[in-house]
Amino acid sequence: MSTIVFETSMGHITIELDHEKAPIGAANFLQYAQDGFFNGTIFHRIIPGFMVQGGGMLPGMEPKPTGDPIENEADNGLKNVRGSLSYARTMDPNSATTQFFMNLVDNDFLDHRSKDMQGWGYAVFGRITDGLDVIDRMAQVDTTSRRGHQDVPVEDIVIENTRIENAEDS
C-alpha cells in the first residue's frame, strides 16, 4: 500500500492506494502524486450526498494537461463506498487520467456490473484513512456554475501540497 497526504486549503486528507486490487490505477495516481501534478489543482465539482471531485483543474477552471488514459479496473471487486477514491472518466470506460472523486456516501450504482457501456462502472483504487471530516466540510460549501461546469465551489478549494508517506513499488 502507498500512503499519500493531500494538504488542502480545508485540511489534510490521507489516502491509501490499493496496489493489489487496482495495480494500474494505484500506480498511475502514485506517479502523478510523485510528480507533484496535483499541487495547485482544485476540487472543482462537489455534490452533497454524492461525491467530491478533483485532480484535473486549476483555479479558473483551467484544465491541467495530463498523460494518456488508463485501463478501467472497475471489475477489481472494490466498491464505491463512503471514503473510497475512484477515477472520474468520460462516457468512454477507459478514459481516466488524473481526475478522481471521493465518495461522500455509499454509491453502489457506480460499481462495475458488466463490461458494456451501462455496466462498466467507476474504478475504485484507494480509500481515505484520515480526513473524512475534511470532505464532509467540503460538501457544505456554496457552489455555482463556472465555464460550462456545474457544482463548482464558489471559493477555490486547493490541493496546496502532496506528500508521499510511503510508496509501494508497483
Results as ranks from 00 to 15, higher is better:
residue 72 N to P: 02
residue 51 M to D: 11
residue 112 H to W: 14
residue 117 M to E: 14
residue 23 P to G: 13
residue 4 I to V: 15
residue 144 T to L: 04
residue 1 M to N: 12
residue 32 Y to M: 13
residue 18 D to I: 11
residue 31 Q to P: 02
residue 3 T to P: 00
residue 99 Q to V: 06
residue 113 R to P: 00
residue 62 E to R: 09
residue 138 M to T: 13
residue 4 I to A: 03
residue 71 E to Q: 14
residue 2 S to G: 13
residue 56 G to C: 05
residue 40 G to M: 01
residue 151 D to V: 13
residue 144 T to I: 14
residue 148 G to E: 03
residue 125 F to L: 11
residue 52 V to T: 10
residue 165 E to A: 08
residue 79 K to S: 07
residue 32 Y to P: 06
residue 58 L to I: 03
residue 115 K to T: 09
residue 96 A to G: 04
residue 72 N to Y: 05
residue 112 H to S: 10
residue 109 F to D: 09
residue 113 R to I: 08
residue 23 P to R: 10
residue 138 M to V: 13
residue 44 H to A: 01
residue 4 I to K: 07
residue 98 T to Q: 04
residue 59 P to V: 09
residue 46 I to S: 07
residue 10 M to K: 13
residue 49 G to V: 08
residue 113 R to C: 00
residue 138 M to L: 04
residue 35 D to E: 15
residue 149 H to K: 12
residue 71 E to I: 14
residue 40 G to K: 01
residue 89 R to G: 05
residue 57 M to H: 03
residue 112 H to M: 08
residue 32 Y to N: 08
residue 127 R to D: 05
residue 68 D to C: 03
residue 169 D to H: 10
residue 126 G to M: 10
residue 15 I to P: 00
residue 69 P to H: 10
residue 32 Y to L: 15
residue 37 F to M: 06
residue 47 I to A: 02
residue 130 D to T: 13
residue 63 P to A: 06
residue 70 I to K: 00
residue 62 E to Q: 14
residue 137 R to H: 03
residue 7 E to R: 10
